[in-house]
């Protein structure tokens, strides 16, 4: 309804009754025509005053302020629900697969690959040294054999110590 179309008093009264005394709260399409009628009609002004009076009466009933206890209960509920959602999400997530153990780990355990190699090389060197000393020992008199054996043992311990320092005690195990 436009301002040019005059609203009839009956419609005006009906709108005032339904939407109250503030024409800004009426349906947009009725506002201009309602204001036009209001400017001319004493009856329309009376209807609007009645509607305003009812609005004022309704406004006596103010909404209560939410208590601290209510706010606490609502936020406690939120925390509980949030916790439940996380538990549900955790249960729904696929279980993590156990890490696969490769052949190197099975054979040599964890750690760098060069460790077992170094340990093997140390063992070979010790074997060569012992073999060489044994052959030399066969040519020397029996009295010198004991000294050569002590030397070989010293060498072996020295190799072991070096390996220990370099790789840690587990390298020779």
């Amino acid at each position: 309804m436009s301002a040019n179309e005059m609203m009839i008093l009956e419609d005006f009264e009906e709108r005032a009754l339904a939407y109250g005394g503030d024409i800004d709260n009426w349906p947009v399409e009725d506002r201009a025509a309602a204001r036009a009628l209001l400017a001319e009609s004493q009856a329309a002004q009376t209807a609007l005053a009645e509607a305003n009076a009812l609005d004022d009466m309704l406004d006596l009933w103010e909404g209560p302020e939410p208590s601290h206890d209510l706010l606490s209960r609502v936020l406690a509920d939120a925390a509980t629900v949030s916790g439940e959602m996380q538990v549900t999400a955790q249960a729904a997530a696929p279980a993590s697969k156990p890490a696969r153990i490769g052949w190197r780990e099975r054979l040599f355990g964890g750690g760098p690959v060069f460790r077992p190699g170094l340990a093997l090389a140390a063992c070979l060197a010790l074997g060569f040294a012992m073999g060489a000393n044994f052959e030399e020992g066969a040519l020397v008199p029996i009295a010198d054999t004991a000294g050569a054996e002590i030397g070989m043992i010293d060498f072996a311990f020295a190799m072991e110590d070096d390996a220990d320092l370099l790789l840690g005690p587990e390298a020779l195990l």
């Binding site: 939410p66 706010l71 949030s82």
Partner: peptide, 21 residues
């Protein structure tokens, strides 16, 4: 809130609880 943000719950509560009540 659905992603676990409790401060969002607090703001929503403060914003709406009065009118709902």
């Amino acid at each position: 809130f659905a992603n676990g943000d409790q401060s969002a719950a607090r703001i929503l509560t403060e914003r709406h609880i009065g009118r709902v009540l």
